[in-house]
Design a protein around this nucleic acid. Structure first.
Lengths: 246, 246
DNA sequence: CGATTTTCATTTGTCAGACATTTAAAAGTC
DNA sequence: GACTTTTAAATGTCTGACAAATGAAAATCG
């Protein structure tokens, strides 16, 4: 674990990279304790604040956790699915928000991936997944629900479908795709009529999931994608006509 | 943008979260310049090193970039697909490596997602994608190729297939699933015969992509998943028999 | 002797002040 | 006007220090 002292730029970044590489390569494993900040400072021939900046970089990625006190220090963290989930959602949200990704592109990716869960969900769905889906459908039908709450419930419904696939890796990957779409979906105002159409499709998905009919889930998701993109298109068209009435 | 000064724990984490929230919510947009470290220190009523630790946390997630000199400072970074790609691969690799995720689970997720690209890839594939796929197939057939190189070429082949779908969001999401599998795949030794089987399936995928036959791509990928899992199983069985000859 | 309390060394969290380095704008010069 | 020099602002780094937490060891007490 060495750094290049001739490169006077970004010492803390170099140190962080060196330690990260040691973790990824397996030289440092979960639970291992890093040397104390003072010892690291001596090893890398830098000051303690510089070491600390490097450690904070790693902490930001949940690679280490720190503990104060005697026999405390920085420990290699087990990257949990929950941590990875959260990171993925933040990253995906920013990615969509900052790169003027078109609604269609995001929508296409999201439904393509969600359909990938359909067959597994049909096989492995349990009563809890079905219960969640039914509950969210009920909520979506309640009058007076704000658009934000409707979208949140929509996300919860689809998460239940994804989780029904019973594959944590798939759930983690899909989290970004499904949840990051929410800010984009929030830009769409859902009329009562379009809500009914969506709820009907959700019911169709829930029924198909209950009946373990994978192809039917896929068909319903395709229909939902088509409908969502059409709704978005009309919203965007209306907005364009309002701001640019030429 | 406020922090809780009564909570004396993790001031730098609080500051980082406050700024990150401002970015995610859109209060700070790409290109905006944060106040200088000295000004931030004054605003949050903390010292400059503490502010710096917070900024390094954000830099670790590629949320900001810093520039030295007059009129320098910390600027909100545009999160590029390339940055997100790299982060995703690191996170996914660590996730698989640290949570004793079974090979089957990872494999199932990876192929499920990859099949989600098949229809789009059949529609949108260009000559460059085909060329890459053919080139990698050729490389995979060369004698004397190490297992690591074979796996690397395998990843490149599948990346080409994913990229052929022509959806950057999908490419970003898939990067984690496909590339993070590589360390797991590297644990498998590929005999000449199993390489031939894989190459044959790759050729089948390339042919189907060329013929824009989405269902055939999916069928070939399913076959490949089956074969991969079978190979892995026999490798693990052999290993278990060697270490535990009871 | 056993249980409880106290002490203490270790380590992270934070602060203050300082200097080096980089950078671009502003001032000066020909 | 074009070029050079100066300068102010900002990050990068260092030194030294103190506060707070924490678990182990020592001391104390029943």
């Amino acid at each position: 674990m060495k750094i290049d002292p001739d490169n006077p730029a970004d010492l803390s970044a170099q140190i962080a990279t060196a330690i990260r590489d040691a973790i990824v390569s397996g030289a440092l494993i979960v639970g291992d304790r890093l040397p104390s900040e003072a010892e690291l400072a001596e090893q890398f021939a830098v000051s303690r604040p510089t070491v600390r900046e490097a450690l904070k970089r790693l902490a930001a990625q949940s690679l280490i956790r720190t503990q104060r006190g005697a026999f405390g220090g920085a420990f290699i963290n087990r990257l949990s699915y929950a941590d990875a989930h959260a990171q993925q959602i933040t990253t995906s949200t920013l990615l969509l928000g900052m790169n003027d990704t078109s609604f269609d592109t995001a929508c296409e990716a999201r439904f393509a991936m969600e359909r990938a869960c359909a067959m597994l969900a049909a096989t492995r769905r349990g009563p809890d997944h079905l219960a969640t889906m039914r509950a969210e459908i009920t909520r979506q039908g309640q009058p007076g629900l704000t658009d934000e709450s409707f979208c949140a419930s929509d996300v919860a419904f689809h998460r239940a479908l994804v989780d029904a696939a019973g594959n944590p890796v798939l759930s983690y990957q899909l989290a970004g795709a499904v949840e990051a779409m929410q800010p984009l979906m929030n830009m769409i105002t859902f009329s009562a009529r379009s809500r009914d159409a969506i709820i009907a499709l959700h019911a169709r998905i829930a029924d198909a999931t209950e009946g373990r009919d994978g192809p039917e889930i896929i068909a319903a998701l395709e229909e939902l994608e088509r409908y969502t993109r059409q709704r978005a298109q009309s919203v965007f068209d209306a907005r364009a006509a309002r701001t640019d009435p030429a």
